[in-house]
Design a protein around this nucleic acid. Structure first.
Length: 119
DNA sequence: AATCTGACTGTTG
DNA sequence: CCAACAGCCAGAT
């Protein structure tokens, strides 16, 4: 377990049920804004139990991968109330984890940095 | 130290 | 929407 990997897992663990985060989001929260690709590698190799890896998706609400079992990823997300159409998460902007956004009503201005989760 | 890999991303055509 | 590219980065060889 490398230091960066540990930070990444710590971030992923904080994603609440019913919410998702993009690889890039996780990278940013873990302190390496451009390490989205590295995050993917870590997700793939990680073995830690109790980590909601399925809540980490690709940019734009695309599903991304899941160790070759995207079907399971989709099922897990749906089980949390997230609607997945094909390989896309519907209303990505609303279920995207920008913690502390009180309720994802979509009525707030996007790109609000004051309510981001702590890093 | 050099290379290779890919659960990625953004741009371009 | 899709494919091709280029950029990027931690980790494994």
């Amino acid at each position: 377990m490398t230091p960066f990997a540990a930070r990444v897992l710590a971030v992923v663990r904080r994603i609440p049920p019913g919410r998702v985060a993009a690889y890039g989001d996780v990278a940013r929260l873990a302190g390496r804004p451009k390490a989205c690709r590295a995050v993917g590698n870590i997700m793939r190799d990680a073995q830690e139990p109790g980590v909601p890896y399925h809540r980490v998706i690709a940019a734009g609400g695309r599903l991304g991968g899941y160790g070759g079992n995207v079907g399971l990823k989709r099922a897990l997300l749906r089980a949390e109330g997230i609607t997945v159409t094909g390989t896309r998460v519907r209303d990505f902007a609303r279920v995207r984890w920008e913690a502390a956004r009180p309720q994802a009503t979509g009525l707030r201005r996007r790109h609000d940095r004051s309510l981001k989760p702590e890093v």
